[in-house]
Nucleic acid binder design. Structure first.
Lengths: 345, 345
DNA sequence: GTGAAAGCGCTAACAG
DNA sequence: CTGTTAGCGCTTTCAC
């Protein structure tokens, strides 16, 4: 049924070592033997058993990627890039979804210790610092995105405070005076950081911070953005601009505004965060903070790779990847409505 | 460094067999021994080596999922569901991206033979029938979605012809007479099937088929939908309704329409296909064919599971999972603009 | 009930 | 250059 190295060796009339050499591309094999082995390989249809190989080599060839949910555009896009980056290093990626709950995040982290992955990229949502100590069985971990916890583990993300500040400064530069925010959530590290950036930009623009202008969001989904926008609109003095902590919230806000007949950006300008692919096509197209997701994926893979192959225990690294402000119709006015992204390829 | 069964056995003063029995929950172990083993397990922090276990057991515990791109919402959503369904059966999922190219699809299929997965869910885009013969090394395969090829392999999908017919019939029932389509593409099985359903609905509504009303789309992305919509609008007699072969194309069409100042659905009604999460929030919200993706994922996992554990070679199955027509603003008129999906949870 | 030993398929010394 | 041999960590007959 399943053909092994030994079978091939017997058929070719050589030892397993020789077959192994051929299979692994070892240079010095007598041409005559090589020919016979290759023939046997072909006729038997031999396929190496990667599991056995890895057991022997002490590595698994797998990497885990822990994210809340693949159906969230940001994570779908990120996962795709991680898989591509990992592939270049010979890794296959195993994806674990946690729904952003602490218990599932803990469970996932614990399961990582079972020697089935060489390392893991972890995008926590609710994990606490106390959850980390050797929970992952000592395999190399890289933390992705902003996190509330402070643990000595490799980490890669964009500068969230600066990014949020950039977004809000853009709104202020447009002459907006009542700039709201959507996405306050004490459980999320990102929320704290983006809120901090928001406040900095406000004060630099000479605007005062007003607590009622910061709407909470339990989750960062479209529906929550719409609901939050509605509460903002019900304020005695509603905002003329809103910084949403991610694009999904912004898309929801766009919809809530359309439903009450307010125009974007004329009445209310909107800025998002993440630059999901869909945000370039919303009506109006969304101005947003665009993290370089590919750079983030590459940096993370590079980091695990160094940990896995590196012997010297160096201090945890904290890498910041670039971002940019993508200005589109939701803050730029109707003039740009003529610009449609050209079909790629 | 890494603690093995043997280490635990030594510490507990028993044999590896006994430890193995405890670890695997074998019932008949002398209480005294069980206690000592559990203690040793705890103090050493033993984690089973899943790879070794699987090598011995002859299974890997992994499943592969082959899709074009995770950044495409449909596949992100589907992958999330597949991972969840696979987990219930004790499988971890390995995701392979092919970008929809035949060469990468072939390569992925070939790599499946390396004994690292117990089975695979394959969503082909460009694969030919000739690519299949034992390319996957004889592991159980389940084909996902519609495919042009006719191979004797398990298959699960919705009834594409019927779904397309349903969508177009809905448009016709609204009184639309010039119903166009976007997404013609001879390389895609889905395209052929949806086109067939489109034609059936047209003739049943007493409308004649017109070749110029079927716009091609090289890829099914938003930008291609926008471009196709523009060519349709340039027709001497433009359409008053469009059936888009997926939601992404429809979102693009919505944008192209907005740019020239046409109203949806008053001037042109739009129907999509896939029911991406974003489609419930577009402006206007998109009427679309909603496949039951969770049912699809469950059915596929169930099928591989039966193949993997089943010994009797039964004939390939062809399972059809349910779908529905989700009627929203893009065909329902502005009346429903007040209905916003409530925040989940 | 539990120990000893074989071996899953492969790679890596180590001889020759 | 190539054969022999010893495991990687685990499960599993087969005795005791």
């Amino acid at each position: 049924m399943t053909v092994t190295l030994k079978d091939v060796a017997t058929l070719a009339g050589v030892s397993v070592k020789t077959v192994s050499n051929v299979v692994n591309g070892y240079a010095f094999v007598k041409p005559e033997n090589r020919r016979r082995v290759e023939e046997a390989l072909a006729t038997t249809g031999y396929r190496p058993n990667v599991g056995a190989r890895n057991l022997r080599r002490g590595r698994t060839g797998f990497l885990a990627l822990m994210v809340p949910e693949l159906s969230i555009p940001y994570f779908g896009e990120l996962a795709g890039l991680v898989i591509t980056a990992a592939q270049k290093r010979g890794w296959s990626v195993l994806i674990e979804q946690t729904q952003g709950t602490r218990s599932r995040e803990r469970a996932t982290l614990a399961s990582l210790g079972s020697h089935l992955v060489d390392g893991a990229l972890v995008h926590p949502e609710a994990l606490q610092a106390s959850d980390f100590p050797d929970l992952a069985g000592g395999i190399p971990l890289v933390l992705l995105g902003e996190h509330a916890v402070d643990v000595p583990i490799d980490h890669v993300a964009i500068d969230n405070v600066l990014a949020a500040k950039t977004a809000v400064a853009h709104l202020a530069s447009l002459g907006r005076r009542r700039i709201a925010a959507i996405g306050r959530n004490p459980w999320r590290g990102t929320s704290e950081q983006r809120l901090a950036g928001y406040r900095v930009a406000l004060s630099e623009a000479g605007l005062s911070y007003e607590d009622s202008l910061v709407a909470p969001a339990e989750k960062y989904h479209r529906a929550h953005g719409a609901a939050a926008m509605k509460t903002l609109l019900a304020l005695p003095s509603p905002p003329d601009a809103v910084f949403c902590f991610n694009d999904l919230l912004a898309i929801g806000a766009l919809r809530a505004l359309a439903e009450v007949g307010l125009r974007v950006p004329e009445d209310v300008a909107i800025v998002g965060f993440d630059n999901n692919e869909e945000s370039a096509f919303s009506l109006p197209a969304l101005t947003t903070i665009a993290p370089d997701k590919a750079a983030l994926a590459e940096a993370a893979i590079d980091l695990v790779h160094r940990r896995v192959s590196g012997s010297s225990p160096v201090a945890p690294e904290d890498i910041q990847t670039p971002f940019s402000l993508e200005i589109r119709e939701s803050t730029a006015g109707p003039g740009s409505w003529l610009s449609i992204p050209p079909p790629p390829g």
